[in-house]
Amino acid sequence: MKPFRFRATVNGRPVDLPVDPRRRLLDVLREDLGLTGTKEGCGEGECGACTVLLDGRPVNACLVLAPEAAGCDITTIEGVAVEGRLHPIQEAFLEAGAVQCGYCTPGMILAAKALLDKDPRPTDQAIKTAVSGNLCRCTGYVKIVKAVRLAAARLAREEGAV
């Protein structure tokens, strides 16, 4: 199979590499770009562990053929922290104890980021809907919702300070 020239922006940096078009975005991120923060759970779009942002919207990277994401702006969990400083959502997850085994966490944080980027003051219902495509097998949902609420409050304060 002729390689496909995969050009995209990943975590703010331009990427240009040949990929087999039969590979999934998940495979290219993890194997070619070494971004192993994106997890593979079910591999069929049910669990959300492989959530990444495509042009700001959460998608399951296991359901996207790599060439379909060409030209897009892709954010993985590695692109969320800025200059080694954790993103307020990441800090909130730590503080609220919203991480148990951690496998769902990158996807949860990206789903939460997509929400807060467009709705800075979400209701609890909006938070639950935003993470409804992400399964936590440790069943820590109460703390996850609490963490997103905490992050929203912090981000609002940061905004206010600027």
Partner: peptide, 9 residues
Amino acid sequence: VGGPQVRNQ
């Protein structure tokens, strides 16, 4: 339909 990720695709 599905969850947000599936609805986006």
